[in-house]
Amino acid sequence: MDRKLYSLCGEDRKRHYSPHVWKVIMALEHKNLKYNLVPVSFGDITAIEDGRFTSVPVLRDGETVLGESYDIARYLDETYTDTPNLFDGKGAIALTRFVESYCKTVLHPSLATIAVMDMHNLMSPDDQAYFRAARERRFGMPLEAMAEGADGERAALPEKLAPVRDLLGTQDWLSGTTPAYADYTLFGTLQWCNVCTSNPLLERDDIVGSWFERCLDLFGGIGRDPTRSS
């Protein structure tokens, strides 16, 4: 099998924490496609395959090499048409793009604050130096100062998840009666904190927490073991 998924991991080379990689992990599992999960550090990224990538995920599938989680998911659906669909029509594509935008603009800023020090502590010393410089340049403050807002962001998270809670009050999955790529997009975003932090992000008796628990149980419970690969 020549299918590789390159994934950012912690110093142990086992704990995979990238939200975008988790989207692709779930997509590959959904489509019953075997793959090797290849751990990389920040310093390794520019050496992946032909050297044109600046972030993960990167997927090699035979002779095809591509990045960006959404592009990978579309490629998998268009290439492997005899496996379960990740997108069931144009409506599913539009829903997924909305969920992506919602995660990027509403959830990612909060989760970045909540997880920042836990992420840093998972990394090798070289990755810690890279991560600190990049994040402090982006946010204009030390990581420690950024992390002071974590409790406030945790408190605000239930309200920010209100649109998801409202939708899940009428259907089992974001995608309808069965999970698909819109669900994996939100799952990957929340899994980012789930992998990095020991303090649960969601209450299990909350409808979003219940949905997340069901996502964790998919595909033999792969989401419950962030060190596991196929």
Score class of each variant (00 low, 15 high):
W211E: 01
D206P: 01
G152E: 03
G169D: 00
Q171T: 11
A156Q: 09
M123F: 07
V24H: 03
D126M: 07
I25G: 11
A147S: 10
Y102M: 10
E78D: 15
E159T: 12
C196G: 04
G209A: 00
E100P: 04
T113I: 10
Q191E: 06
T46D: 13
D225F: 05
Y75L: 11
S41M: 07
A180N: 04
A73E: 09
L37G: 06
G169H: 00
Y6D: 02
F98Q: 14
E203K: 12
L218C: 12
Y35R: 12
I45W: 02
K90S: 15
I45Y: 00
I207K: 03
K104T: 11
R13V: 11
S230I: 13
M123L: 15
L167C: 09
N85T: 14
Y35G: 13
P39K: 07
N36K: 15
T54M: 11
S7Y: 09
L157R: 01
V65I: 09
Y6F: 07
V58N: 00
S230K: 15
S175D: 04
D118A: 08
P57S: 07
E78T: 13
L33S: 04
R97T: 12
T83C: 12
M1W: 06
N36L: 14
G152H: 03
T185D: 08
E203Q: 09
D50C: 01
L5H: 04
Y184M: 08
E148F: 10
